[in-house]
Amino acid sequence: MIRAENIFKSFDDNEVLKGISMEFLPGKTNLIIGRSGAGKTVFLKILVGLISPTSGKVYYDDVDFFSLDKKQIREIRMQVGMLFQGSALFDSMTVEENIRFPLDMFSGMTLAEKHDRVNWCLERVNLPGVNDKYPSEISGGMQKRVGIARAIVLSPKYLFCDEPNSGLDPRTALLIDELIQDITYEHNITTIINTHDMNSVMEIGDNIAFLHQGHLAWRGNKDQVLETESEELKSFIFASPFLQRLRTQALAAKNQ
């Protein structure tokens, strides 16, 4: 479990996060949603310690993350996998070398064992046989999958995904979402996903936190989204007139 406690973050006089507290549950897809610029990436990077908060605390299973020394932080990080907004694959390495990198660095495996593990991960993300391609030779959606494969190669306890489906067509986006959710359930991972995609919210939102103007404006799950009375959330998720009509119809159908 990961717990954030009263996180504040400002850049100069731009106050981005104004006291966010929340828990992220194991075996669940925890979503952080909010408008572009709401501070989702900043919040996620604070959770993994890439940015330090102006004030507030982050706990990993009741260990205060920011009180740890560098070595202890690295030990926690070995249990963390992260998919970046832009995939962040190393472009001078092949797909196989990318996925193998954490293994090369931290495991005592033989080359054959590493190769098997890489293939297992690629199978898992439905992308077998691209081992020798370079990141520039595969599509954006495939890059995301390779990013996921690399994030899960060391069997993480915590998985962070920053906009896993931005820039993908709705069908591919859905596949990526489902993939992340399946992996989360299979291995009881604490998964935290940043997104502003309403499909993701409605499909995989086990535990949703809505960031609005620096505050945690709403919490709930995908079933509660439909019925929410929060004006900010409604105008964020059901942004277009078309979606508003759908919502009204869905609510009507439900209440019959």
Partner: peptide, 14 residues
């Protein structure tokens, strides 16, 4: 800039 350094940090690399 391409977040490669962040990605390595997250893996636990110094």
């Amino acid at each position: 800039q391409k977040e490669h350094i962040d990605a390595m940090e997250i893996m636990g690399v110094n």
